[in-house]
Nucleic acid binder design. Structure first.
Length: 936
RNA sequence: GCGGAUGUGGCGAAAUUGGCAGACGCGCCAGACUUAGGAUCUGGUUCCGAAAGGAGUGGGGGUUCGAGUCCCUUCAUCCGCACCA
């Protein structure tokens, strides 16, 4: 082969040239294109696709992408057929808010941002198969989002089958048996017989079916954000403010589309057993789903036919229930109020209603109102007063509680405030019998023995719960019940830039569009605002009707709709006839490795699981869980720099001298600071107010800046753009450095100071392939044992570490390898090393691979095979310790037995010093680990 | 309040099952080569101590021949949920 040796002069590591050359080569040769290949095992590596925001990527964004890219490339080397796609979550509020302000169509903003993202991503050299790119705002894509939504509309959840089932089967059951034979998840329940069903008109039947559909319309309390003009799902609201924009959110009763995700609550919990997810995410989702076991119990109301149902997890404490509380929004609140209290009750309800979430959270003062009515405790038969209070939430359980002040802290506070009786029913273990009147807090624990509790006296709490539930069910005053905190997800948004909901109204009754009418494309409108009548923006569209003239739904879908099933679409992105073909989904199954941020734990990651389980029920996907292994990359924090202005002057004092003055700490742009040394000229030019700045420098004549770790943000002037790093050091350096920073899951600060190390490493690696005349040179000489040992040690460590996603230590072992190889230029060592480097630094690896005389891509080479024959040692360097402290080391043959080791160690010169004048108590020898001599 | 995670040099960090604490990199110090160094190379770099040696993984206690790792306790920081009956 002639092209083995290139005698080019001055073969410096020119990363810019190399980068452009190979990115072009990969693009033109479609190096990363992937198709179904049954001769190879599949592997699916997915990144959470980005929302293309106007700000572009900062160095934190690619962290997960680099990790997944390394893993994908590694899997390819290992012989897997790897699906590694990328796309854009392109519907969303920011582009629409921008449209409202500027009139620019969100589609234009989004397209522009996508271009920018693509450029930035391309710069880093990812191995995505771009032929599979998807965008959630593309009608060809959202056709299938709409299609799934229609399926949700057309299915209900059957508790007997424990899966989704077509709604027509529900109709058949109603037709034949009425409601009695149906065990399904529903919102409002209505009992009827088959005859009654048969007599109902179409509209009535549809109303009933709506209570069962998995996408359903319901009058419910929702999070309403007036500023955004839309409702929001629970995960889109934090502390009473919208996540997007940070505007206040109110509660409002509205008719809304919802997804019946609660039907899947138990399966969402059960699924954790089959997937490999980080513990914290499982924990967060488990809390969000919030399963609790207890009972619902009916309380009769004195002098009335009404009954009120409460939910409790502590039915054992029912003998201590001394009052009852209803949520203000409870349908019975006003109804049960006695005439003399009606006005006050009504006032309280009004007051509670007008209180914002924020107010409610800020002040936790006890408030409530007596209704004048009494309930009857079914066990004590005592009359207990009924209150309304806003500490009871309408959205949880039944919106009513039996209050047991002795054993619930909130009830306790309420009872003290309103002077209500407190009866202790659980005896603390080892109690010193303080009378209840003297308690300063309730006793909420489930440890103890029941007292004052009639039939369950003397039982342990656990047994008492079991016994009392049996009793409750026997006397038909209630039943065992599992409750979930998870709420159904509000699915409509009164906004423009989202998928239109494929529903039309015929005589006010919602119907789904047929598949032929999909996609229902987003119409053009004159303004991106609600109509004067307060209708959502889509109501502005001309002819927002079906072909036969029926009005279409004007709400659009929320952000999570498009991202809930996108991983399926990558498997078969151009299929016009199906969401995904059977062939594709039966080959790719589900995502093997999913990398993304933890902030999606209660949003996307739960919706996607629900979505997938639903499709699984329909038989469309073979796996019940979408993401087999999940990894959360940690956040990259910013490293801010500061200058110190002497108060009231324009003089700035260096960090180590600042304590001598009274100073103001000011953020300074990290781009005019190098290794914490401020560039004075650039600083003067940075902002007009600093033009005439004076400096007090340190002894070295430099201005040292202070620094702090903060969130990366524009206002802190600490945003690091990946493009700048790529420009200055190259993509490979960026990739290596980001991975070398620390464990992938851990949050870590970005520190540009360290990047030189990664750059130097690549330069050193490059130099291995060149002789001292700077000519590319590989020797065909046989490697010696030491060189083989270095190589194979590295193969083992790098492979093991990549499998564990421990990229930081993998790189560290590559660094050690390059350091140890020193001037070795043997092909049999450097070519395998080049392949080991390729996932991390693909550009430089590809260049060197081709310089070495190959015509094919390094990315397609098989991973070097580890041979432990090369790493075998016949001696082990034992640490010899006395009383647990290592004093010296000794090379010993690994085949020696403990007796022999003991003999050698005790006779060693060095040992004498530590043994002399002391008694040897014990000698511990752990082969291939340590020798420890205990002396006294 | 409840739940979770994390505490190791000046900095980012490493350390199979308990077995040489600080690998690797940054920074710093010294030297070499240089007109120059913000290039490159060599050596050093946990702290105290001249050395011998001693101390040391947030603090205190325990188990063990031996603890960053296991147990108890305590403190700090970060994150999630938050009137969920």
């Amino acid at each position: 082969m002639i092209y083995c040796i290139f005698a080019k002069k001055n073969m410096e590591y020119n990363f810019r040239e190399i980068q452009i050359k190979w990115q072009k080569y990969w693009r033109e040769n479609k190096t990363y294109k992937v198709d179904i290949d049954k001769t190879k095992p599949k592997y699916y590596v997915l990144d959470m696709f980005p929302y293309p925001s106007g700000a572009g990527l900062h160095v934190g964004h690619p962290l997960g992408y680099i990790a997944s890219d390394i893993f994908s490339r590694y899997k390819v080397h290992k012989g897997f057929n790897v699906l590694h796609p990328m796309g854009y979550d392109a519907f969303g509020l920011p582009a629409e808010q921008y449209a409202i302000q500027t009139g620019t169509h969100p589609a234009i903003t989004t397209e522009k941002n996508i271009q920018r993202y693509r450029e930035q991503l391309d710069n880093i050299g990812f191995s995505y198969d771009w032929d599979r790119e998807i965008r959630t705002c593309d009608p060809k894509y959202y056709k299938w989002t709409q299609w799934v939504v229609i399926q949700l509309f057309k299915h209900y959840y059957d508790n007997d089958l424990n899966r989704a089932n077509p709604i027509k089967f529900l109709e058949e059951k109603f037709e034949k048996y009425g409601s009695s034979e149906v065990n399904a998840v529903h919102s409002e329940h209505e009992e009827f017989t088959a005859e009654e069903w048969q007599k109902m008109d179409y509209k009535k039947r549809q109303e009933i079916l709506m209570n069962y559909r998995l996408m359903y319309l319901s009058e419910a309390y929702v999070n309403w954000c007036p500023k955004l003009g839309t409702v929001l799902a629970n995960d889109e609201v934090v502390d009473g403010f919208s996540v997007r924009g940070g505007y206040p959110v109110e509660r409002k009763k509205m008719k809304q589309w919802l997804l019946r995700i609660t039907a899947y609550a138990q399966r969402l919990l059960d699924g954790f057993a089959t997937i490999d997810w980080p513990e914290p995410v499982v924990e967060i989702q488990t809390n969000w789903i919030g399963r609790s076991e207890g009972a619902t119990i009916f309380f009769e109301i004195a002098d009335s036919n009404h009954k009120i149902e409460v939910f409790t997890t502590r039915p054992d404490t029912i003998y201590g229930a001394t009052f009852m509380v209803l949520a203000p929004e409870h349908e019975m609140s006003l109804e049960i109020a006695s005439p003399e209290y009606r006005q006050q009750v009504s006032d309280y309800i009004q007051w509670a209603k007008n209180r914002s979430e924020v107010e409610r959270m800020a002040e936790k003062k006890v408030s409530g109102q007596f209704t004048g009515s009494y309930a009857i405790n079914p066990f004590t038969k005592q009359q207990i007063p009924i209150y309304i209070a806003d500490y009871v939430l309408i959205g949880y359980g039944t919106g009513a509680i039996m209050a047991v002040p002795a054993h619930d802290s909130r009830d306790f506070a309420f009872a003290r405030h309103f002077n209500l009786p407190i009866i202790q029913v659980v005896q603390r273990p080892n109690e010193d019998n303080i009378p209840v009147e003297e308690w300063s807090e309730s006793y909420d624990s489930k440890e103890g023995i029941m007292i004052n509790s009639g039939i369950i006296n003397g039982l342990e709490v656990k047994d008492a719960i079991k016994t009392i539930i049996e009793k409750i069910e026997e006397s038909e005053i209630g039943k065992k019940k599992v409750n979930y905190r998870l709420r159904d997800a509000i699915f409509g948004r009164q906004r423009y830039w989202g998928e239109p909901i494929p529903i039309y109204y015929k005589d006010g009754i919602p119907h789904a569009l047929s598949i032929e009418e999909l996609p229902l494309e987003l119409p053009e409108i004159d303004k991106f605002l609600p109509t004067e009548e307060g209708e959502p923006p889509l109501a502005r569209a001309k002819n927002w009707k079906t072909f036969d003239g029926y009005p279409l739904e004007t709400s659009t879908m929320p952000g999570f709709a498009g991202s809930s099933g996108y991983y399926l679409r990558y498997m078969d992105p151009h299929n016009e006839w199906e969401l995904v073909s059977e062939k594709a989904v039966n080959y790719w199954h589900n995502v093997d490795l999913y990398i993304g941020g933890r902030e999606h734990a209660t949003g996307h990651l739960i919706y996607a699981r629900f979505w997938n389980k639903f499709l699984y029920d329909l038989g469309l996907v073979p796996k019940d869980e979408p993401f087999q292994k999940l990894v959360n990359q940690g956040m990259i924090q910013g490293r801010s720099n500061f200058v110190y202005r002497i108060t009231g002057t324009n003089t700035f004092v260096s960090y180590n001298l600042k304590d001598k003055y009274e100073t103001q700490k000011i953020h300074v742009d990290i781009n005019i600071v190098n290794n914490d040394i401020l560039d004075l000229d650039k600083f003067r030019k940075w902002q007009p107010e600093f033009e005439n700045a004076e400096f007090i420098l340190e002894d070295d004549g430099k201005y040292h800046c202070g620094w702090e770790i903060e969130k990366m943000s524009k206002s802190m002037h600490n945003v690091q753009n990946p493009d700048d790093i790529v420009e200055k050091y190259g993509a490979d350096t960026l990739r290596i450095y980001e991975m070398f920073l620390g464990p992938i899951e851990q949050a870590k600060p970005w520190d540009t100071n360290g990047i030189e190390g990664a750059f130097r490493f690549l330069k050193k690696f490059w130099k291995l392939f060149f002789n001292n005349k700077n000519e590319f040179y590989l020797s065909d000489e046989q490697p010696d044992l030491n060189e083989l040992k270095i190589l194979h040690k590295t193969i083992k460590k790098v492979s093991d570490d990549i499998e564990k996603l421990a990229f930081n230590t993998a790189i560290s072992s590559l660094m050690i390898c390059v350091n140890e190889l020193n001037n070795c230029n043997k092909r049999k060592i450097l070519e395998p090393l080049c392949i080991l480097m390729s996932p991390f630094a693909p550009h430089i690896a590809e260049e060197l691979w081709h310089l070495a005389g190959h015509n094919d891509s390094v990315t397609k080479q098989s991973w070097p095979v580890y041979n432990d024959a090369y790493t075998q040692e016949n001696t082990f360097n034992y640490p010899i310790s006395f009383n647990g402290k290592t004093r010296f080391n000794l090379d010993l043959d690994i085949n020696l037995n403990n007796e022999q080791i003991k003999e050698i160690v005790l006779n060693n010169e060095n040992s004498k010093k530590w043994i002399e004048g002391k008694e040897i108590v014990k000698i511990i020898i752990v082969p291939r680990k340590i020798v420890n001599i205990v002396v006294k």
